[in-house]
Simulated scan of single mutants.
Amino acid sequence: MQNVTLKVAGMSCNHCVNSVEGALKTIGATGKVDLASGMVHVEFDENKLTQDAIKEAIEDQGYDVN
């Protein structure tokens, strides 16, 4: 398993947290949002997912990944 921390812009409430964490779960990753810092800590199987796929899943929810 690999871990990555991403800066995500535009998250402001619990709905945002649920959207991002739910999108990650859908693609097979585990995400934990730190709303105060705007960071998302993601654990994923690098043999099944790429960081680009993770970023795309978050961006599809309407947020910007930096």
Score class of each variant (00 low, 15 high):
Met1Gln: 08
Gln2Cys: 08
Gln2Arg: 15
Gln2Thr: 09
Gln2His: 11
Thr5Cys: 12
Leu6Ala: 02
Lys7Phe: 05
Val8Arg: 03
Ala9Trp: 08
Ala9Tyr: 11
Gly10Pro: 14
Met11Lys: 02
Cys13Ala: 03
Asn14Ser: 15
His15Phe: 13
Cys16Ile: 08
Val17Ile: 14
Val20Asn: 01
Val20Trp: 00
Gly22Val: 09
Ala23Gly: 15
Thr26Lys: 15
Gly28Ser: 08
Gly28Trp: 07
Ala29Cys: 05
Ala29Gln: 06
Thr30His: 13
Lys32Phe: 05
Val33Ser: 02
Val33Ile: 06
Leu35Ser: 13
Leu35Cys: 07
Ser37Glu: 12
Gly38His: 05
Met39Phe: 12
Met39Thr: 13
His41Thr: 13
His41Cys: 08
Glu43Ala: 15
Asp45Val: 07
Glu46Cys: 09
Glu46Trp: 02
Glu46Gly: 10
Lys48Pro: 03
Leu49Ser: 06
Leu49Trp: 04
Thr50Val: 01
Thr50Arg: 06
Gln51Asp: 01
Gln51Pro: 02
Asp52Ile: 05
Asp52Ser: 13
Ala57Gln: 01
Asp60Trp: 05
Asp60Glu: 12
Gln61Tyr: 01
Gly62Arg: 03
Gly62Ala: 04
Tyr63Ala: 00
Asp64Lys: 15
Asp64His: 14
Val65Lys: 00
Asn66Asp: 11
